[in-house]
């Protein structure tokens, strides 16, 4: 969607996790590298743990050690 005064780019901040930004976007990182995505929304990593930085890879999620935490799908 074009970024106009009538339709400004929508950015969503949550309590935790990534910053959601309507795409397409071009992101310049601190080291000068440029990442481009034409996805309808992109999730920008805020925790800096992502292996796909600047994109979120869900590395911000809370971790549990074996034997603690709820049972979940064996994916």
């Amino acid at each position: 969607m074009p970024n106009t005064p009538e339709h400004p780019c929508r950015i969503t901040l949550g309590d935790e996790g990534p910053l959601l930004v309507e795409g397409p976007v071009e992101v310049t990182c601190a080291d000068g590298s440029v990442a481009v995505s034409d996805r309808f929304v992109v999730a920008l990593c805020m925790c800096r743990r992502s292996r796909m930085y600047p994109w979120c890879d869900t590395s911000h999620r809370r971790r549990t050690k074996p034997g603690e935490g709820p049972r979940r799908s064996a994916d």
Partner: peptide, 17 residues
């Protein structure tokens, strides 16, 4: 509660992946 359970990632898992 069920969604929160899915959003926790084990340090080590035993599934197929």
């Amino acid at each position: 509660e069920v969604l929160d359970g899915l959003l926790v990632e084990p340090v080590r898992g035993t599934g197929v992946s």
